[in-house]
């Protein structure tokens, strides 16, 4: 069901943990739907120096969190903003269609952490919108996500 790369990132997730005094922290998802992602970013001079995550969720949720943190480390804020759920999924050699919403969660978690960073530093990041309270609101429109309840 999962690609080898997904299984690799699930079994050996990169960047699990927390960052003390992180520049920005973002949490998205909800326990009701079965997935929550929390991303910590350390940003210096517009560059993402480090990223860590904690995730409650399925194999795809863990793997996309791991891959998303890998992809943003070393990138500028603008570059990181352009990492989409599709690019995370592609970097994992694809996800089963029913799991695409997990990759969306990873994208939104990075955005939420950047939003937190911008707010803390009183700056505006071009192209960054305020994160949704519940990422799954977004899912409903695409008809791929949780939940009915």
């Amino acid at each position: 069901m999962y690609s080898e790369k997904v299984m690799d990132h699930f079994m050996n997730p990169r960047n699990v943990g927390e960052i003390e005094e992180a520049s920005g922290v973002g949490t998205v998802g909800n326990a009701k739907c079965g997935d929550i992602m929390k991303v910590y970013l350390k940003i210096e001079e517009d560059i993402i120096q480090d990223a860590k995550f904690k995730t409650f969720g399925c194999g795809a949720a863990v793997a996309t969190s791991s891959m998303a943190t890998e992809l943003v480390i070393g990138k500028t804020i603008q570059e990181a903003l352009h990492i989409t759920n599709k690019s995370v999924a592609e970097a994992l050699d694809g996800l089963p269609p029913v799991k695409m919403h997990c990759s969306l969660l990873a994208e939104e978690a990075v955005h939420a952490a950047l939003w937190d960073y911008a707010k803390k530093n009183n700056i505006e990041i071009e192209g960054l919108e305020e994160p949704k309270a519940d990422v799954h609101d977004h899912d409903h429109q695409e008809g791929t996500g949780c939940c009915n309840g």
Partner: peptide, 22 residues
Amino acid sequence: SACTSGSLDPSHVLLALGLPHE
């Protein structure tokens, strides 16, 4: 878990026992 049911909703049996989704 929802993720194993293919439906994204957790088991109707566990919900009927009164367990919260999480």
